[in-house]
Design a protein around this nucleic acid. Sequence first.
DNA 1: TTCCAGGGGTAGA
DNA 2: TCTACCCATGGA
Length: 311
Amino acid sequence: MAVSSILLQAVPPFDFWSTLQAHGWVDLLPNEYQAATNSFLRIEELSSGKVVRLDISAGEDDDSVPIMIEIQHTGKLSGADRSQIENAVRHMLRLDEDFAEFYALCRQHGRPWSEMLPGKGRLLRSPDLFEDMVKVICTTNIQWGGTRRMVRELVESFGSPYPFNSQLKAFPKAETIAAVPFSEFQARLHLGYRAAYIHTLAVHYAEGRQMFNDFFKSESSSAEIKKKLLAIKGIGNYAAASILMLLGCYDEIPVDSVFQQLMYQKYFHQEDFDLKDALVIYADWGKWKYLAYWFDLLTFHQMAENERASD
DNA sequence: TTCCAGGGGTAGA
DNA sequence: TCTACCCATGGA
C-alpha cells in the first residue's frame, strides 16, 4: 500500500465539523464519519480506475483552515489522479462557495439566525451529481434508517471494492448500474418502487452525463434546472429542492414531513396550516431560503435537545 | 397488526 | 392547479 497526501486551504470562515454534521450525508456510504478524530473517510473510484481510500480532516489556524487528505492507494498516483481527488474534496466541502451575503442577512434577521456563526451553513455533498441524485431519491417517503440501508445495499452490491479491504467500496458508477438488467437490479436490492427510478436515472446519466453536468453552468437559472429535474421520474418538488441545494442553489424549500413538522410545532402552534402561509416565513431570504430554513430547523431541534437535557 | 416515513406518478376534475 | 389514489419496503 502507498500513502499520499494533499493539503488544501479553506478560506475562513470555514467550519469543518458543522459542514459534516449539517445534514446526514456524512453517514451515507461510501462516507463514514470518524468521531474519534472528527474526520471522515471515503472510498473513491477515480477515472483512472484506481479505487482509493481518502481520510479527510481539518486543522485550526487563524488565517486559513488546512484541509488534510490522506490517500491510501495502489501503485503511484498520477497528476490527474491527484487533481481529481483535490477537485472532489473541494466540491464536497464547497470550498469555492461564498456565503458572505447569507451571513450578512443572518446578522440582519433576529434569532436564531443572528446567532449563526460565520463558517457554518455549508452542507456536505458528493463529488458526483449522480450519487447525490440517487441518495436524494433514497430519502423520499422513507425514514432515515431506510435511506441508510438502501444506500448501503447499492454500494455493497455494485460499488468497486477498495483493493486493501474488499468490505469497503466506492459508490457505484451510473454506467455500472445501467449495465445491470433491471430485473436483476430490482431483485438484488430492496428499494421498493424507487428501483425503477434509480435504474432509469442510471441509464440516462450514463448516456448523457454532459447534460447533467450542464446543471452546474452558471448561466442556468435555478428555475431552469428545477424544470429539468422535475422531468426526471422519481424527482418531485421535495427532491428537486434538495438537489438544487446540493448544486449550490438555495432558493427552494424542500417541503417534506420534516418541514411540515417544524411549521406545525414552531410557527402554527400545533394547528393545521396552509402551506402557502408556511412558505411566506422564508420568503424574504431570496436565494438563501434553503439555508435559512435549515438553520432554523437545526436550532429548533438543538433547543429542544437542550430543554430535555435540563429536565 | 397497522401506520407511515427527509414523496412522487397518474388520472380526473 | 388541485385532489384522490396507488406505489414497495421496513421500522415503530
